[in-house]
Design a protein around this nucleic acid. Sequence first.
DNA 1: GTCCCTATACTCGGATAGCAAGTGTCCGAGTATAGGCGG
DNA 2: CCGCCTATACTCGGACACTTGCTATCCGAGTATAGGGAC
Lengths: 162, 162
Amino acid sequence: MRLSQGVEWAVHSCTVLASVPADRALPAAKLAEFHGVPGAYLAKHLQALSAAEIVTSVPGPLGGYRLARTAEEITLLDIVLAVDGDESSFVCTEIRQRGPAGCKATAYPKPCGIARAMWAAEVAWRDALQAQTVADIVASMFEEAPREGFAKGAVWLREVIR
Amino acid sequence: MRLSQGVEWAVHSCTVLASVPADRALPAAKLAEFHGVPGAYLAKHLQALSAAEIVTSVPGPLGGYRLARTAEEITLLDIVLAVDGDESSFVCTEIRQRGPAGCKATAYPKPCGIARAMWAAEVAWRDALQAQTVADIVASMFEEAPREGFAKGAVWLREVIR
DNA sequence: GTCCCTATACTCGGATAGCAAGTGTCCGAGTATAGGCGG
DNA sequence: CCGCCTATACTCGGACACTTGCTATCCGAGTATAGGGAC
């Protein structure tokens, strides 16, 4: 079970976008430059965030992306599901109905116990991600990241969004 | 984030193997027949279970697989990690160190907050899977599965393992 | 001087190749049994 | 009749193709700005 690489980029991008004023926007190319990742590919994930209405896209010159709502209202789960898809990690193919011990579908009133256990674990995972907002991440970064990095980032951002 | 198809087969196989006496063994081909899945591919996953010492393989005629320990001592997490790999679902590439706001690695005393949140969610997921044993699954099946299916399965198993 | 128009440049969005990992299959190494042979 | 040997058939284990989905990239559609021209 491996999570898409783009999830990391998307979350980092959201933390940066949290510092962009509501009347400004940050282009995808600048976000890619900030993180040192290929811009064309990051753009693809930003499109996913835009489709999920997590970020708002602004076309044209001085366009780019900004958060569609406040950082407190965006959870890690929102981002993960937008980028990686919202399908369940475990898919039950009902193999219990097949083979020599299988019965017709109506004989099984409840979902397969294996699937229920897997889904319960996934719910625990989602709950943990739901409890973390972008604002929480930004706060922890502000707490722990080196002051030097923050200063350089602030200067860079001020220069870029003008 | 999608879990391998083989995980479902592996867990179902373990529930069946839980009914195999310690002095008998069930061949991979029979397990595949019981579940209606391609035998050659199921064998691959059973090899993974064998490598993880979850099941014991017996070569030669009258050979096959049996559980390496009691069903109470095998958790869903054991099976999932054996089949799907034990790498973390989220890999942090430390992109915070790159770009215009990056500092040298020694300036970051703690792991990235995003990675910590992702890993915490994964721990919650693993804990939920660790809490479920194969014996629990078998018990729930015995509780809910149709009596007809159990009867047919018992007859089939008695016939196969002789 | 002011307003309007046009050309420009910059942005996002979707369509297009490349590659790794999961999916599916096969054949060879090893072993317990069953039958045959010798004592 | 009993014990040993050999051939057999059945099992697992690892090596080999194929497909799906993630990775990476590009070019076209749309828009706000900047400059130039007309009034």
